[in-house]
Design a protein around this nucleic acid. Structure first.
Lengths: 363, 363
DNA sequence: TTGTATGCGTTATCAA
DNA sequence: TTGATAACGCATACAA
């Protein structure tokens, strides 16, 4: 009944229609520049557009969804957004999404499975057109994600790969990255190198170690098992730091000389850095340290950390382009191809590495 | 016409109605546990609920919005999400929002005014029920936000305050924080202290400096103008680091002794740390450094940074509770109160500060 | 070149 | 205790 203007500050299409003197069908056609707009008189168009602007009309995405079945919305789910890995990835996703006029829903599982599931539910209730999962370690039932794909909702994971035929993924080329890191140390003359391997449960660990082994083999570098440590499978956000610290102390305790540490990731490297510093060993003068990831603190540390950079922003953008392809495929009733992309890591040389001390320690 | 079951994997309420043999009205009443559900036969309820579960029915939030005018969605807008200030804040927001079953849209202005405006537009099109703005420095036309408030969309800013009667805000008590920092140095015996003040354009700068001055006055500590530097008004994400580095070098160049540096924020402190290290001055042995914010890298640095902690997660949660009050007020047609909250900072003592060197440098 | 009518998935009002 | 029906804001098929 009473359409009180008291309540409704929101301008609807009907308001524009009434005000401009045309039907809402015409208004719809004009404002959306639909195919039929070809046949609308220019004067009409102009009048409608002007009143729309004057009234401050804004299309209602939700009402539109009811007809078009398009929500112009995607879900972005993090396993743990506090992981420094996530922020640049998020930036990359946001940036790429911006030009598609899709808006992302933000969800953070906080490494809890039930939160993950609840968020999946909420995302589904809101009919996201795609889902991007930024993953680090938590293990989620693959079927949950596969279910989405079956509903024709494209899913892509970043930093984690599902052994599954229905979910796309974007990961850095871990093997190449590890090779880059070791090669760097090798070219600086380091031969006694300590390694802190990643936890078994993390998917990146194996390929990184493989990269190390392959390079070592090719270069004739011997990996001393006495200089190899491995991170345990515990996953608080910053556990890598603590563990890196502890393992480096332990390595130091073994009384085997080493002139460089190759850490699983930057967090571990920071832990190593602190342990070395505490032990009175100067980095990089007496020992070099190299990390992996290039998270923000790497550039801030003193000494600034040499590391292998994951192109996280680009990976985020890549993920967006993959799901967008999927959305377009779905719209055109084509099957969305599932792809697994590998991005190329890059060596970033800063201050924590330098040529192996001539004589003095090594050899 | 043909309602092909080929396409629609989505279960609607009508599907549940058809399958259970009741009308969709009844289904709606039961599934929402509406007041009328009191009068529905238990057997009916059970049957409906079972079929709903069996079919995997999920309410469509958008369709629901059309009737209820509630989108169960809020906007979270960042000026620059790469600022380390943002991540914990985001976590706090997300965490508090989770229990309200509102889902946040993520928007990042990347410090660009036009992006900010475009996102505002997109958020409005999606009928967010509230807006939380996580701000650091960019200056946005206040009226844009005030407009939202006028539409009964509650707005709260975190880390930035609008000189305006319609937008709520949450900030740390900068004055108290600065006092905490200086007091810490003072109690450690430092008397020759260098200061790096914040940029004029940042709202936090003035109150922090006021806190410093007040404490100095109260304690009879002299602030040597020759030991005071000020960050310039440039705002790339990490410009504070560079500037802190440069200004510390300059301070060092003035040849005036100082035994501690009180930096505007952690980024600046990291810059100072590096400059000191480069100059061969050991921290904290020869010079203490204190920051402000307690961003993640502070705990990772070697030495770990002593700083004043902003309770960012709590601030995010507080912002959520403010807008939720606003939403509830709007629902009940009450006026939403505008509030300005100050959160209490906390001193975090780590490794970068220690008692002033007995003799040797100071005095 | 433009208008009318219908339906998208829900919920609220009214009848039965 | 339950079922028709209308309406939310929009876009399309069809009519004019």
């Amino acid at each position: 009944m009473k359409r009180g203007k008291a309540k409704s500050q929101v301008v609807t299409m009907r308001d524009v229609a009434k005000e401009s003197g045309f039907s809402s069908a015409t208004v719809s056609i004009v404002l959306n520049n639909a195919p039929l707009a070809r046949y609308i008189a220019p004067a009409t168009k102009e009048r409608i557009e002007k009143t729309a602007k004057r009234l401050g009309y804004r299309p209602n995405v939700m009402a539109r969804f009811l007809r078009s079945q398009r929500s112009h919305t995607v879900g972005v789910m993090f396993f743990d957004v506090l992981d420094p890995f996530c922020t640049p990835t998020l930036r990359g996703i946001e940036n790429a999404l911006f030009s598609t006029s899709c808006l992302p829903f933000f969800a953070d599982a906080q490494n809890q499975r039930n939160r993950f599931e609840r968020y999946l539910e909420m995302l589904l209730e809101r009919h996201v057109e795609a889902l991007i999962v930024v993953a680090n370690w938590l293990f989620v039932d693959i079927n949950l994600l596969a279910d989405l794909s079956k509903r024709n909702i494209p899913v892509v994971t970043i930093g984690w790969e599902v052994a599954n035929e229905t979910v796309s993924s974007v990961m850095v080329d871990n093997e190449a990255g590890a090779r880059l890191a070791l090669e760097h140390l090798y070219l600086l003359g380091h031969r006694k190198i300590a390694f802190i391997r990643g936890p078994k449960a993390i998917i990146d660990s194996a390929p990184r170690w493989k990269g190390v082994q392959k390079f070592a083999q090719g270069a004739g570098l011997e990996i001393d098992p006495g200089l190899v440590a491995e991170l345990p499978d515990v996953f608080d956000t910053y556990s890598g730091f603590e563990a890196g610290y502890r393992l480096t102390q332990e390595l130091l305790g073994r009384k085997k000389r080493f002139t460089a540490v190759l850490a699983f990731d930057d967090l571990t490297a920071f832990g190593a850095l602190r342990a070395l510093t505490k032990a009175g060993i100067k980095v990089p003068e007496q020992c070099s340290v190299i990390g992996f990831d290039d998270i923000a603190p790497a550039a801030l540390a003193a000494p600034a950390l040499t590391t292998v950079r994951q192109p996280l922003e680009a990976m985020g953008a890549l993920a967006v382009s993959i799901v967008m392809d999927g959305i377009n495929a779905a719209t055109e009733k084509r099957a969305a191809p599932v792809v697994h992309r590998r991005s190329t890591p890059e060596l970033v040389v800063r201050e924590s590495t330098r040529p192996a001390a001539g004589r003095g320690s090594g050899d």
